[in-house]
Design a protein around this nucleic acid. Structure first.
Lengths: 122, 122
DNA sequence: GCGATACTTCGCCAGATAACGAAGTATATC
DNA sequence: GATATACTTCGTTATCTGGCGAAGTATCGC
């Protein structure tokens, strides 16, 4: 019950469901997710933590970077939740646009991406 | 997207997920749901409205009574959501207890049930 | 070690949400 | 038509949530 409510609460935010959907494409570091959503790093970090607590994503630390991805072995409840998202939202304009944006973000140089958010300078 | 977020937000409350699960057993009127949850009628009414808006339940008015039930023909997203709840929570102690309680509530006389909540007198 | 980078945690604020009781609406009964 | 019943809607309050920027932590490069 606890796990299930953690999942439903995690899904009850559009930015978090978007994250789960574009993470289907593979792992991304926090600064890439920041670029995807256009939110402050602290906000993104919090969202990622909520998804992590719910067992909907996993993290991997490599040097200064932290990569998040969908879990390799999700719990049954988490697996069904992700499958549900997938089948219900894959065709949504917003989600399709995110998938396209994702490719652009992955191609961006890390220097262009990550160094910008200390001062908010674009 | 809108529909989907309405569903996730509707599911992100324990009382509402409980309602959906005990409504699997068949339609119930508001005063029976009030008895199930132990909340004020106004609160229950609001919860039912949120579930209704999300397409997760339907209503039927019979005289003074309003019966709520799972939809006969749910949308694909709603159907998957309900199926997900079902497969993830059927065995939860709380949900099993609700199913048992439901039988007791259905057997209760309507006079014993409904007339009590004007003054809160038990 | 020292500064820079990539996050995370903390403290704050505005807006959303769950709860209640009181007042309003609709329907049955007298 | 008046009264009671079964909800619903409204107004209020306390708590939760999402957002931000500032400060803290960990790691890399010099």
């Amino acid at each position: 019950m606890r796990e299930f409510m953690a999942i439903t609460k995690a899904l009850a935010d559009e930015n978090r469901t978007r994250m789960l959907l574009f993470l289907r494409g593979g792992e991304m570091c926090v600064c890439q997710v920041v670029e995807m959503l256009g939110l402050a790093p602290s906000t993104v970090s919090k969202h990622l933590d909520i998804l992590h607590q719910a067992g909907l994503i996993e993290s991997r630390k490599v040097g200064r970077w932290v990569y998040y991805r969908l879990p390799d072995k999700p719990s049954p409840a988490a697996a069904k939740a992700i499958e549900w998202l997938d089948s219900s939202l894959s065709r949504e304009p917003r989600i399709v646009a995110d998938a396209r944006h994702r490719k652009v973000v992955l191609k961006m140089d890390k220097e262009q991406l990550c160094c910008r958010y200390t001062s908010g300078t674009k």
